[in-house]
Amino acid sequence: MPQITFQNLHSLLLFLIFVIADRREGIGVCGWILVSLSFLLVLVTFPISIWTCIKVIREYERAVVFRLGRILSKKAKGPGMILILPCTDTFIKVDLRMVTCNIPPQEILTKDAVTAQVDGVVCYRIHSAVSAVANVTDVHSATFLVAQSTLRGVLGTQSLAQLLAGREEIAHSIQAILNSATEQWGIQVARVEIKDVRIPVAMQRAMAAEAEAARETRAKVVAAQGERNASEALRQASMVLAESPAGLQLRYLQTLTTLAAKNNSTIVFPFPINMLKSSGQRSKEG
């Protein structure tokens, strides 16, 4: 009788596990026979085949294993070591890290019939490896094309003023549309950014001229308001000085003092006429 060793018991246990798993997957009698032959091939060439059957999946990766064309266990494997049977099993690695997709400049016709070129950035990641492999041929290419068409479609419904002023709101609406479109592919869009908006040179000059005219108008309004305030202040000062002639003389003397302090010049101080009249009247009375 053949001697039963620990290695034989281990191989038998693995065989039973594979048979139960394959029956649960419903691969049929022919599939069970193929899997059994594949497993026997591994046992016969065990020291060599073990290195080709064991695959290492990194922390940020998942492996979608196909056994006779069916996804094994309907879920991705990893991270860590997984066992792949030769001839019956194949696998596809899926990277779960964040992907940054640059959208090249797209020519957009805005709602108010202005042609503009807009580019952007879309950040997304795969949250379901099985959906990314089974539901779409090339998940990255499909996401890129959908992002391009969504960007053009959403920006085409906005005016130029809304496009220039509301980039953040537009980016959020694009992100929501992309999430609903790529959910069945196992994609989650994390962020959408509109990088640059380029408009024709003639439109730039017209907008610059309009902005300059608006600035000049505001400057004229501010200057007119200042002149009005100054005139009001002078009017009130003249009313105060008219009520007090002595105050006018004091203001006159203060102005002469200020001029003498700033410039080294000779100032002719005129003698008030009213003082001459008063002195003449006194001489006549004497």
Rank of each mutant, 00 (worst) to 15 (best):
P2T: 12
I4P: 04
T5K: 03
T5P: 00
T5A: 07
Q7A: 14
N8V: 13
L9E: 03
L14G: 08
L14T: 02
F15W: 02
I17K: 06
I17L: 13
E25V: 00
C30V: 15
W32N: 15
S38Y: 01
S38W: 00
F39D: 10
V42H: 05
V42S: 06
V42I: 02
S49N: 10
I50T: 03
T52E: 14
T52H: 12
K55E: 11
E61A: 06
E61Y: 05
R62S: 06
F66G: 10
L68R: 01
L68M: 09
R70W: 02
I71R: 01
L72A: 15
K74S: 13
P79F: 09
G80L: 01
L83H: 08
I84K: 07
I84R: 06
P86R: 02
D89Q: 05
T90R: 09
V94Y: 08
I103R: 00
P104T: 10
P104Y: 05
P105A: 01
I108Y: 02
L109A: 08
K111M: 01
D112V: 07
T115I: 10
A116I: 05
V118H: 07
C123S: 14
Y124A: 09
I126K: 00
H127I: 15
S131T: 10
V133C: 03
T137L: 11
T137S: 11
T137F: 07
D138F: 03
V139E: 07
H140D: 04
A142L: 02
L145V: 11
Q148K: 02
S149K: 01
V154F: 03
G156D: 01
G156V: 00
G156Q: 04
T157F: 03
L160C: 08
A161M: 07
E168M: 05
I170W: 00
I177C: 04
S180H: 00
T182H: 03
Q184I: 09
Q184G: 10
W185V: 04
Q188K: 04
V189A: 05
E193R: 06
R198E: 14
R198A: 13
I199E: 05
R205E: 15
R205C: 12
A209I: 13
E212T: 11
E212L: 11
E216S: 12
R218C: 12
A219N: 12
A219H: 09
E227T: 13
N229W: 10
N229C: 14
E232C: 13
A233C: 11
S238I: 12
V240M: 12
A242V: 13
S244I: 05
P245G: 03
L248K: 09
L250I: 09
Y252R: 06
Q254N: 02
L256F: 06
L256M: 04
L256Y: 01
T258E: 14
L259R: 08
L259T: 02
K262N: 09
N263A: 14
S265F: 11
S265Y: 03
I267G: 03
V268G: 12
F271M: 14
K277D: 15
S279M: 14
G280P: 13
G280N: 15
S283I: 15
E285Q: 10
G286S: 12
